[in-house]
């Protein structure tokens, strides 16, 4: 009898320790993976470690990072935003066509428009209680149709690139401005999550929505804000892409959806919500970029990239998911 009690007690204590162990694993793995990848690439090609090429690498990761950053907030709420890439494409079309009229104000206008688009999706999600992946899947189709209509299914050249030059230049001739924009976005969102109640509320909703609701949290408002943030960063990512191609196109960013989802989950943010952080998405975007570059160094056909994203997404989700929250996996 006493033995049984001791065993039960021990089991209880072990169960309490599981979250900690999970935390260590999920924290250590992405960072380790990132460093190992970097080291492997450096061995394969020492030239990569020169500042110039590292910065070029970072530059290429910038739009992806921005795109994934806002969507991370939605994932932390326990939802998902599958519309970000289509919205970024739409943003590129809007930006290219608004620059002649608005010049410098075009970028903020596009970001604001995308934030509104995101907020609308959030509103539909909370008001009609439709799962977020359905709403954003519908949004994805809608935004890309709007982009096709607005552009006439063609590339929209930008007559004057000065309003977006700031997003594709090198400060001091060295540091790509896009990298700074990406870092600033991540830091700003992380600060928002750290220093305002929003972060606590997003996490609480992601971890245990019933408890959050009964604690009197403004669930609907928080979710709409999360989707609006996701929309806004999608707009900014679209602007970064326009800055480097000097044009907008209705499918410009579409191929970034899978890498963006991969960046979020590979960083260790669980799609069940709650567990995760903005910096993780930064690491995740780094891993995705290094893998892509690594594959091309290794002489692997770019065609395999998509397979890689598929495997990464399923693998990372399987590792980070909080199964205690899923009694039935749908």
């Amino acid at each position: 009898m006493a033995d049984a009690a001791r065993v039960a007690g021990l089991r209880g204590r072990l169960a309490a320790r599981v979250p900690e162990r999970r935390h260590v694993v999920v924290t250590a793995m992405p960072v380790t993976a990132f460093l190992v990848l970097l080291a492997a690439l450096a061995v394969a090609s020492p030239a990569l470690l020169e500042t110039g090429s590292l910065l070029t690498l970072a530059d290429s990761a910038a739009p992806l990072t921005v795109l994934a950053a806002g969507a991370t907030v939605v994932v932390l709420c326990g939802g998902i935003d599958l519309s970000v890439a289509a919205l970024a494409s739409l943003a590129s079309v809007l930006l290219a066509s608004w620059v002649p009229a608005l010049s410098g104000a075009a970028v903020p206008a596009v970001v604001a428009a995308c934030a509104v688009a995101g907020a609308v999706q959030g509103l539909v999600h909370v008001a009609f209680r439709i799962p977020s992946f359905v709403v954003t899947l519908g949004g994805m189709t809608l935004w890309s149709a709007v982009a096709l209509l607005a552009s006439g299914a063609a590339t929209v050249p930008m007559p004057d690139s000065t309003p977006t030059d700031w997003a594709f230049t090198r400060l001091g001739g060295l540091v790509p401005s896009a990298v700074l924009v990406a870092l600033a976005t991540v830091v700003a969102l992380a600060a928002l999550m750290r220093f305002t109640p929003l972060g606590r509320w997003v996490r609480a909703i992601g971890h245990a929505e019933p408890a959050a609701r009964l604690a009197g949290l403004p669930i609907a408002r928080v979710k709409v804000i999360a989707f609006a943030l996701s929309g806004a960063t999608a707009g900014l990512a679209g602007a970064l892409l326009v800055a480097r191609t000097f044009s907008g196109a209705p499918t410009l960013a579409d191929s970034l959806l899978l890498p963006a989802v991969a960046a979020i989950v590979v960083g260790g943010t669980a799609i069940t919500g709650g567990h995760g952080a903005l910096w993780r998405t930064l690491v995740g975007a780094g891993i995705v970029t290094l893998l892509r570059v690594g594959l091309s160094y290794a002489g692997v056909d770019a065609a395999y990239e998509s397979i890689l994203y598929g495997v990464l997404i399923v693998g990372a989700v399987a590792l980070t998911i909080d199964r205690s929250k899923l009694s039935i996996v749908k």
Partner: peptide, 18 residues
């Protein structure tokens, strides 16, 4: 399920709505 958010801290749980 409805009272506490198990993964969050004592302080976060106590001050959740504020």
């Amino acid at each position: 399920v409805e009272g506490v958010v198990s993964a969050m801290s004592v302080a976060d749980n106590m001050t959740l709505p504020y």
